[in-house]
Design a protein around this nucleic acid. Structure first.
Lengths: 200, 200, 200, 200
DNA sequence: GATGAATGAGCTTTCATTCAT
DNA sequence: CATGAATGAAAGCTCATTCAT
């Protein structure tokens, strides 16, 4: 209560999440145990359960943190988009840059994105952000900023391509310089794809 | 006698794979245990190990089966493609149709595809097929069938979009009629995307 | 200030005992944890240890309270007994009436009375009261108020029958009216039993 | 299947029950853990769970064994009773003799008889035997073998007194010779008690 | 080759208890 | 005194794997 405790509590929570990310990356989520996570901190095993009920909760917390960070940026950017090109670019650019800078959490994010429903892709935060995207797409269509396109397939495509490219980008070892190329390719690809389906 | 034995052996193997797919779908790969799989057959637990070393081997076997089926078709089709449109269409059409018909195995494939460094996303068969695709793309570019494009990003994109659309398509409950729409959307999207990146 | 503190201290102690009785009844002594007890109060877990060393101490405290109440009455009554009938009646009547009124504590007492070498069935208070009974029986025999009978078996019998009848009585749901019947049955039964063994 | 296995299975089950009884007596049921039980056998910890789900199941199995043994005898005897004296004697005699000979299991039986509902007094077998007793009492009353008495209180009393006396008897260290005295006391006590309540 | 009980490492989780605040 | 997070021993239990039959 007096600050020192509160501080310690927060730091412990972060300690566990950090350790969780490390272990998830190292061993994969399946193979990770609560023991693995707690072993890397210097906390007692029981302490884990003061903060999380399971390793999955740690994962969700880690993903939510990332989702909030990147989601906030993307939402703000979308508001400013004047046309399709900007709309897509303003999603792709921060997304890929985030992926580059936070590749570790992003690797978990990606390598587990589609996992089993049990704890899976649909972090509350992620669901929320995807819903925001969908709403902004609909609004964009109504306002004439975006062409008239199947909203579901569009959202899926932008998500899939962005993730796919991010994954490829991250796994290219020599990926220092070509972030701009990746952004350009990705934006171009999606914009053109979208445009072409206008007449379908 | 020997025939019957051989038959029985094969039938046990298939029994296990079939049970594996069921359980993987039901509980997710993580939560599935060898016990779960063997319980659904009427075999003894020890029998499992006469056929597979682990549940992961069952998964790989199941995926390989599917990969071989769909891969064969796609490879044959690619040879016949005269231009970009056909090249893409000939990939997308059988892929989405397969996804529609075998949605169960496909759901495992998709819902766990990326999870899985731990037991290798890349089934030998899948690696092989992706390499075949890559080779055919390179050959396509050389022969002028395909435009000059970053091979890696192209492969990634085609794979990502196809998977994303397949996933969306499968999860739309009322998906009897619009398979053709999905194919058209998907093909258009990729073709246009690719064309646009020619000048990048 | 000091008065209020003192008051608070007492109230916490009683709070814990009360909560203990509730939980013991609800979950049984075995399954009850200190956490369970403290959770029902709004005290912190550490506070528990300012008053008791273990849940067993809470139990003993609760039992002792009851034992003291009922024991006091029985002791007083015994002194006034002029003959066997009165001696028995003066034990049974207050005992069964107490059991009726305080059935909750009595249910704990009974439903766990024999379990418990581990944390001692014999509350100091209970041992004391049973010793008092034994002494009064011996005195009663010496003074001719009671017939000459094996003291141990007599004490056991009176205790067993009283408890058994109390248990049966309590578990009969419609037990508003027949408390007098129970007392009569019980007294009759013991008195006659005792008389019959005089000549053994 | 071939006998050797079947044999081993049976022997393991008995091993666990035997060990369970030992530990229950030694540490009390509360304090006994599955690990304690299995440690005394030379079996692996997992093996326990091939036979029982919990220590409580072991307890029930042990109690059921005893209940079946003693219950069988008592049921047979009751049929032969010609009058109240015999009816009671035929219950008490085998019961107390059994208690003397099998005092270990009987100590568990008694010291936990009234325990918490969770696994408690009411072993399926015990419930059954008590119901049989009740039925025979009712039949006895109808046939004029027993006097007209409240069945519930009678059953409770006979049970309470028998148990109480057994407990006292067992706890008397020098109890080699006086089993007959105990039987006589107990029978006399109950018979007289019952008779006295005829006119209530 | 099929069986399924035995194995035991090791994971999850609880909980009494302590102690800095 | 009250608080409640931290502790870590230890319990319950699962499960992949082995191996005698």
């Amino acid at each position: 209560m007096t600050g020192k405790r509160e501080e310690n509590k927060k730091s412990n929570r972060e300690l566990i999440i950090k350790s969780g990310i490390d272990v998830f990356l190292e061993k994969g989520i399946n193979q990770t145990t609560v023991r693995d996570i707690i072993r890397k901190t210097n906390l007692a095993s029981g302490t884990f359960y003061n903060y999380f009920k399971s390793k999955e909760e740690v994962l969700v917390a880690a993903l939510d943190d990332a989702t909030v960070q990147i989601g906030q940026v993307m939402r703000d950017q979308r508001k400013k988009a004047k046309n399709l090109e900007e709309f897509v670019l303003f999603q792709i650019e921060p997304f890929l840059k985030f992926a580059k800078e936070h590749s570790s959490i992003f690797l978990i994010l990606n390598s587990n994105l589609n996992m089993v429903e049990s704890f899976s892709i649909e972090t509350p935060m992620m669901t929320l952000e995807l819903r925001y995207l969908r709403e902004d797409v609909i609004a964009g269509i109504e306002q004439g900023v975006l062409p008239n396109i199947d909203v579901d397939y569009f959202c899926t495509s932008i998500q899939s391509v962005a993730e796919g490219v991010a994954r490829t980008f991250i796994s290219k070892k020599d990926s220092k310089a070509d972030i701009d190329l990746a952004i350009k390719f990705c934006t171009n690809f999606i914009v053109s794809g979208v445009k072409s389906t206008q007449n379908v």
